[in-house]
Amino acid sequence: MKRIKLNVNVWRQSSNEDVGKFVKYTLSDLNSHMSFLEMLDVLNEKLIEEGNNPISFEHDCREGICGSCSMMINGEPHGPQKATTACQLHLFNFRDGDEVYVEPWRAKPFPIIKDLVVDRSSFDRIIQSGGYVSVNTGSAPDGNAIPIPQKDAKLAFDAAACIGCGACVASCKNASASLFVSAKIAQLAILPQGNPERKSRVINMINQMEEEGFGHCTNTGNCEAQCPKEISISNIEKMNQEYIKANL
């Protein structure tokens, strides 16, 4: 087990109205097996002991599936390790004495609440606008009542792996939410269960995406490269196809 020292520059901002800045903290004797969030926990304990304000950062499952731990680490959403959320990023990905820069997602529809915490409720409103399916009430349906080809099930599952963390928006030069919205649309459009609302879903969700103020997609693919769940950009093509069909 290695012990390392890091110079962690964290974006500190008391509210959305405040002008934030990087504050440098030097942390020595860090266990390299520690996760990035555990390192922030250690830093916060230190700050509290010193009577300072701890760093606000969002976290929940710490298992890489909730999408809460949204932060830009050294210019990459969730940090330098591919297909990994910040909570699953371990300090052995850094070298002893490294300068680390941590800042929140930057996008108008993701206003900063405090420090590294942003308000991602715009994603919730997009889901509310159409990211659901109609189901019959009553007893649970039989699991195999609707046969689904294996290929479709796999594509839908790949799209459903999106955890809605917002890394796609954060990494896109246009702050576009296309990868997130398209994954949610494609996931349901591929499956027969999504058919009843197929047209209204794509129209409503894109309408809401526009309403929230996200940018447009220029098909540059940085979202796909930075997505911790490796959601494919082909979902955006599927979304465009669905949107054109719904408007015809």
Binding site: N9, W11, F22, M72, N74, G75, E76, Y101, E103, R106, A107, K108, P109, S171, K173, N174, A175, S176, G213, F214, G215, H216, T220, G221, N222, A225, Q226
Partner: peptide, 21 residues
């Protein structure tokens, strides 16, 4: 669309952003 993109991120990042495009 370029103008709209700028308004979608009024304040940019302070650190160097990795762009693989």
């Amino acid at each position: 669309l370029s103008y709209k993109s700028k308004s979608s991120r009024p304040s940019g990042y302070s650190s160097q952003i990795k762009d693989s495009s």
